[in-house]
């Protein structure tokens, strides 16, 4: 095959697009991971309270978002929800809400799972020396549980980062959608999409390696 690779052609003149696309992707990844983490800590804590009027709706939320594709969720928030609530959500918000709720349901499970994985003996020993629930959580349970939560949380964040490419379907100008725009302008999909793939790889490879290291450390 005699293809004339020309990366210069798809970069020159589009620098600002690419930089903006990269920043949008990173901002969504970081923002929805943090948002999902906060949501997960809140929902996970409420699940531990073991009140049925709290646990049932939270379990419903978790299962609903875990068992539907995030692509469907983003599309639903952008195209379907506005008909229900009679308000058109801007694309950036619909996509952000979808991605955050998706991350949040996994973070909930990671948080709850980390806490309940702590041996019963640790809880009873903390109670026996007269710690209140808050003291026990802060000094005994969370320090041990957080160590166990970090590896699965980093792995889920890597998946979340990749899922931001789905912003493309509602025309949020992330890395992927920028690629689509540049292709439309240059008719050079090979260079553009190869470059986009390389960019994701360069961002995510260190993160996955870090996740692996944390997992190995957790096994000790």
């Amino acid at each position: 095959m005699n293809y004339n690779w020309d990366f210069f052609f798809v970069i020159a003149g589009y620098e600002n697009w690419w930089i903006k696309g990269l920043l949008v992707t990173i901002a969504y990844a970081v923002g929805t991971v943090i948002g999902g983490l906060i949501l997960g800590v809140i929902c996970g804590t409420l699940l531990l309270a073991n009140r049925i009027w709290l646990t049932v709706p939270i379990h419903m939320y978790v299962e609903l978002f875990r068992c539907t594709p995030v692509l469907v969720q983003i599309v639903w928030f952008f195209f379907a929800l506005p008909i229900l609530i009679q308000v058109q959500l801007p694309a950036w918000l619909a996509a952000g809400v979808g991605l955050t709720l998706y991350m949040g349901c996994f973070a909930t499970e990671i948080f709850r799972g980390g806490i309940i994985s702590i041996d019963k003996g640790q809880w009873q020993a903390a109670r026996a020396i007269g710690m209140t629930y808050v003291q026990m959580m802060r000094h005994i349970i969370l320090p041990q549980a957080i160590r166990r939560m970090i590896p699965p949380f980093v792995n889920q964040s890597v998946i979340q980062f990749k899922n931001t490419a789905l912003l493309y379907v509602v025309a949020v100008p992330d890395l992927m959608y920028t690629g689509y725009l540049v292709v439309a302008d240059t008719y050079r999909p090979l260079e553009v999409y190869t470059g986009v793939a390389v960019a994701y790889f360069v961002l995510l490879y260190p993160l996955t390696q870090w996740g692996k290291r944390l997992e190995a450390r957790g096994d000790k």
Binding site: D119, G121, Q122, Q124, A125, A126, R127, A128, I129, G130, M131, T132, Q135, I140, P143, Q144, R147
Partner: peptide
């Protein structure tokens, strides 16, 4: 209740020292 429990010292079969 926490204060009440601190009037006792308890030792368990499985030791249950705080692992961290």
């Amino acid at each position: 209740l926490a204060k009440f429990r601190s009037r006792f010292g308890m030792v368990f079969q499985q030791f249950d020292l705080f692992a961290h």
